[in-house]
């Protein structure tokens, strides 16, 4: 377990590209982020912005071919994960870095019992025997609040509900006490009530064990609930990073503002839902300069000619950065 505030993961200028028929798709194109031990970092963005590919890159799970890491560093526990051997990376996966996926319906192997699937992880990394691994699986199922774990350990995934399956995924991910948990939209496929339970479970386990969590989601509500800091991603780049309260109170990027506007507001009954004009640019052909300028109400000539770097915004926390030439005018929106 790391010291609090110790940097656990540092991604620097990560570029993950995919070779396609039309050329090279730059799914992740210069992403930098840091995550401290015990912290929850929300990674937010529309579908296709590269947030899931960022997660897969960290674990070295980008399908190759066609995908490959074209540049950048992923520093975890003193090592650059883009440079370590496949075997070394495999030893980290599931043990130090674990991942939860968005579709609990398909992410579990349908022909193995949930017990076998949890036991597999601990047998692999802890070298436990069959019985000890089974005991550990039961213990983990109890930890994620699955009723009668001694019976459920022999259940197949199809015999469990979606929420239960996601609990099993969490049990699997947490079974080796990882230092970093990557949760890729863990609640999209679930009912709202179950969503809240799952988020609460992740949060409890995290505070108990001091795990760093990278929470990937498109749901700003989820982020508000559990994240400490938020990184907003657009078209393969991070456009804004801020502590969660600051981001909600004073978003500094026009895209972030657009995302908040698109949230349905129950108080404003009967109004049309706001949508950001236009659509996400293709990863094969990003616009020059700022990638958001084609949809941005503040776009100017400067935005077309030069790409805005991530720069600090003067705030109380001093931890708020944004990549926008016109961040000072965002308040006008």
């Amino acid at each position: 377990m790391g010291e609090p505030h110790e940097t656990l993961l540092e991604v620097r200028d990560l570029r993950t590209y995919f070779r396609g028929e039309e050329g090279v798709a730059k799914a992740v194109d210069g992403v930098s982020l840091t995550l401290r031990a015990g912290e929850t970092l929300g990674l937010v963005g529309e579908s296709g912005c590269g947030k899931s590919v960022t997660a897969l890159s960290i674990l070295g799970l980008v399908p190759n071919p066609p995908g490959y890491i074209a540049g950048g560093e992923i520093r975890f526990a003193g090592r650059d994960l883009t440079q370590v051997s496949a075997n070394e990376l495999r030893g980290l996966r599931g043990n130090d870095i674990a991942m939860i996926f968005q579709e609990p319906m398909t992410a579990l192997n349908p022909v193995l019992t949930v017990g076998e699937q949890i036991a597999e992880t601990v047998r692999l990394h802890r070298g436990l025997g069959r019985d000890a691994a089974r005991a550990r699986a039961i213990e983990m199922l109890a930890l994620v609040n699955i009723p009668s774990p001694e019976e459920r350990v022999d259940a197949y995934p199809h015999q469990l509900s979606g929420g239960m399956r996601q609990r099993v995924m969490i049990a699997m991910a947490m079974s080796c006490d990882p230092r970093l948990l990557i949760a890729d939209d863990p609640t999209t496929a679930l009912d709202v009530t179950v969503q809240a339970q799952i988020l609460e479970l992740i949060e409890t386990l995290q505070t108990e064990r001091g795990t760093g969590v990278l929470l990937i989601t498109h749901d700003l509500g989820v982020v508000a609930e559990v994240a400490d800091r938020v990184a907003v991603m657009y078209a393969g780049k991070i456009v804004e990073v801020a502590p969660v309260d600051e981001l909600y109170e004073r978003p500094a990027h026009p895209y972030t503002v657009g995302l908040f506007r698109s949230l349905p507001d129950l108080a404003q009954h009967g109004e049309r839902l706001h949508a950001i004009e236009g659509s996400v640019p293709s990863a094969f052909r990003y616009p020059t300069g700022c990638r958001y300028r084609t949809r941005c109400p503040l776009a100017s000539e400067l935005c077309a000619s030069s790409e805005p770097p991530l720069a600090s915004v003067a705030t109380a926390s001093g931890a708020h950065t944004v990549a926008c030439h016109h961040a000072d005018r965002v308040g006008e929106l």
Binding site: A98, T106, A107, E120
Partner: peptide
């Protein structure tokens, strides 16, 4: 191409185990 294969890889399962246990059984 199935999701459970990605899950197995994310667990750190060996190639051989993924091919001959996870895939073959399915």
């Amino acid at each position: 191409g199935r999701d459970y294969i990605t899950t197995a890889r994310a667990k750190g399962a060996t190639k051989r185990k993924i091919m001959f246990v996870h895939m073959l059984k399915n």
